[in-house]
Design a binder for these strands. Structure first.
Lengths: 151, 151
DNA sequence: GCTGAAAACATGTCTGC
DNA sequence: GCAGACATGTTTTCAGC
């Protein structure tokens, strides 16, 4: 039941790839002290096991035309309704992340939009799609975001 | 003042790299309809301009030994104190993201830890480092996270 | 700012340990 | 599970437009 702890070599590989997702196998091999083919083999296995879920690029929200970030808390309109909110929200691409949480509200969403008007429109879409009421917290600035975990 | 909108070819490149941060220049070139060297040139320029802030790897929190995610809201103990909270929190590596927000609280943090005990310890560290009181919302599950923005 | 070509380098596969 | 070798593919640089 308890997942086995990631072994030290895999941990080192994952740490390096988390810091720079485009690091080459050659580079990784040097850093973790294995041959290139051994690293290759381990990375493929980490991908297959789902430890590595994919690779992505960190972007500047301002510069890509999505300068407005917000956190939106969701409360079901009908508490007796079946809890399929994530499914109902999945198609809304402005929602970057969706967390099911303990507390007064059921879900917290992180969204990125182009403007206050786009946020207003998005909130309407969320309320209609999921039959929820929303509470919105606007992000004023982002001192840091998406830092690598400490393994 | 208004940043120029990302031009269509850069937009396409950024969209592809956001979906898969390890996509090769060869692959990107085919997808956006440019030569490999033109794509290479554009990606380097996007990195230098800070549109692309870096590359990272999406990991499974459970499998890397950080199964517990939480959102922590911060309220200053002394509202008159200088607002250098991000600096005071930066060294705490369990904090993945730090948002300055509009609302009752000043900041919201996203953190990942190994256990409830580690969360308790982390909260103590945050309160001491930043002289704040905290309100913690535990994440029960993550239906989705870190999806690519719609450009 | 683009293309195309060439050299350097990385990846993926396979063999043997 | 790892190392080494080899063929193939990718990155990086450069000349020319």
């Amino acid at each position: 039941m308890t997942g086995p702890v990631l072994e030290p070599l895999d941990q080192a590989i994952v740490r390096e790839l988390s810091a720079d997702g485009r690091r080459s196998f050659t580079d990784l091999a040097e850093r973790v002290g294995l041959s290139v083919s051994a690293v290759h083999q381990r990375v493929r296995r980490l991908e297959q096991r789902g430890v590595i879920r994919g690779y992505t690029t960190r972007l500047d929200g301002e510069q890509i035309g999505l300068p407005l970030t917000a956190l939106i808390s969701l409360t079901p309109n009908d508490p007796a309704a079946p809890d399929d909110y994530p499914q109902r929200l999945e198609h809304i691409t402005e929602i970057e992340s969706c967390y099911s949480v303990a507390g007064d509200e059921s879900y917290i969403l992180l969204v990125r939009v182009a403007s206050p008007l786009a946020l207003e429109e998005l909130l309407r879409k969320i309320r209609e799609s999921a039959k929820v009421s929303t509470r919105t917290t606007v992000v004023l600035s982002t001192p840091f975001e998406g830092r690598s975990p400490t393994l």
